[in-house]
C-alpha cells in the first residue's frame, strides 16, 4: 500500500515558477543558489530556464529547495535519479565551504567583538571553546569529504568500493552549537552590548539551522541516492 506523503506548502514550487517569485516567497533559498554556483541577476526567467541554462536538473533543484524550506520533507524514491548523485555531492561540498570560509569565521569575528567586554579569564575560556568547536566541525566535514564524498566519486567513476564506508558519521555538532548559544545568552557579562550579542546569536542560530538542513540532505537525499544508484547492477 502506498503511504500518503503530505508535502505541504513545498508542493507549490514548480519548474514554471519565476525565480523572482521563488526568492521573494522563500529568501532562505538564496544559499541554495550560491551553493549550486548560480549567480544573480536572474532577470525574469523561470526555474526550468535557469536550471537548463546552468546545466542543472530542475527536479534536483526543486528537491533541494523543498528540503531547505521544510526539514521534514523527504523526496520519494521515484523522484531520485542516478545522475543526481554527483550533483548532490558537489552541493554538499559547496555547503562545507560556506561553513568553513564564511559562517564560522564570521561568527568568530562576532565573538571577538563581544570578548572585548569580558575579563581575561572569560575571554580565554570562550576563545578556546569556540576554536575547539570550529576545529571539531572542520574535522567532521573533512572526514565526510575524505570518506563519503571521495568514495562516491570513485564509485561513480567505476571503482569498486565498500558501501559500508559511505555511512554518514554521527556527530554532536547540534549540541555543541546550542551550547554556544546558551553560553552567550546566560553567561556573558552585562557589559557586552546587546546588539553585539544579538548579532552573534542570530548568526549562531542561522548556522545551527543550516547545519540541520545540511544533515537532512545527507540523510534523506544523499543516503537514498547512494543506496539506489550504487546498489543498482550496471547493465
Amino acid at each position: 500500500m502506498n503511504k500518503i506523503n503530505y508535502r505541504g506548502a513545498t508542493s507549490l514550487l514548480s519548474p514554471e515558477m519565476k525565480i523572482f517569485e521563488l526568492i521573494d516567497a522563500h529568501p532562505v533559498l538564496l544559499s541554495v543558489f550560491s551553493r549550486l554556483g548560480i549567480t544573480l541577476p536572474f532577470g525574469d526567467i523561470s526555474v526550468e530556464q535557469m536550471c537548463r541554462r546552468g546545466g542543472h536538473s530542475p527536479e534536483l533543484f526543486l528537491i533541494l529547495c523543498r528540503m531547505h524550506i521544510d526539514t521534514s520533507f523527504r523526496p520519494r524514491p521515484s523522484e531520485l535519479r542516478e545522475d543526481m548523485l554527483l550533483s548532490v555531492v558537489g552541493y554538499l561540498r559547496a555547503t562545507h565551504r560556506y561553513y568553513t570560509e564564511y559562517m564560522l569565521p564570521h561568527a568568530g569575528e562576532h565573538l571577538d567583538e563581544i570578548l572585548e567586554y569580558c575579563d581575561e579569564l572569560s575571554r580565554s575560556m570562550l576563545t578556546k571553546f569556540y576554536s575547539d568547536y570550529v576545529r571539531y566541525i572542520e574535522q567532521h566535514l573533512e572526514e565526510e569529504e575524505q570518506t563519503i564524498f571521495a568514495n562516491v566519486e570513485s564509485a561513480a567513476a567505476g571503482s569498486r568500493i565498500n558501501l559500508a564506508s559511505l555511512e554518514v558519521p554521527h556527530s554532536d555538532i547540534d549540541d555543541r552549537t546550542n551550547d554556544i548559544a546558551s553560553l552567550i545568552i546566560k553567561c556573558l557579562p552585562e557589559a557586552a552590548p546587546t546588539h553585539l550579542r544579538c548579532a552573534m546569536l542570530s548568526h549562531i542560530y542561522a548556522l545551527r539551522d543550516d547545519l540541520r538542513r545540511h544533515y537532512n540532505v545527507e540523510v534523506a537525499l544523499l543516503r537514498p541516492l547512494i543506496a539506489q544508484t550504487l546498489n543498482t547492477p550496471k547493465q
Binding site: 579569564l121 572569560s122 575560556m125 570562550l126 571553546f129 575547539d132 554532536d172 549540541d175 555543541r176 546550542n178 551550547d179 554556544i180 548559544a181 546558551s182 553560553l183 545568552i185 546566560k186 553567561c187 556573558l188
Partner: peptide, 22 residues
C-alpha cells in the same frame, strides 16, 4: 537548567559563573 550538554561547555559555564577558578 543550563541548556548546555557538552563537558567543555559546562566547564566554561562553571568558570564564567565563578563556581570554580581556572
Amino acid at each position: 537548567k543550563t541548556g548546555i550538554r557538552s563537558v567543555a561547555g559546562l566547564t566554561v559555564y562553571a568558570v564564567l559563573n565563578k563556581l570554580i577558578t581556572n
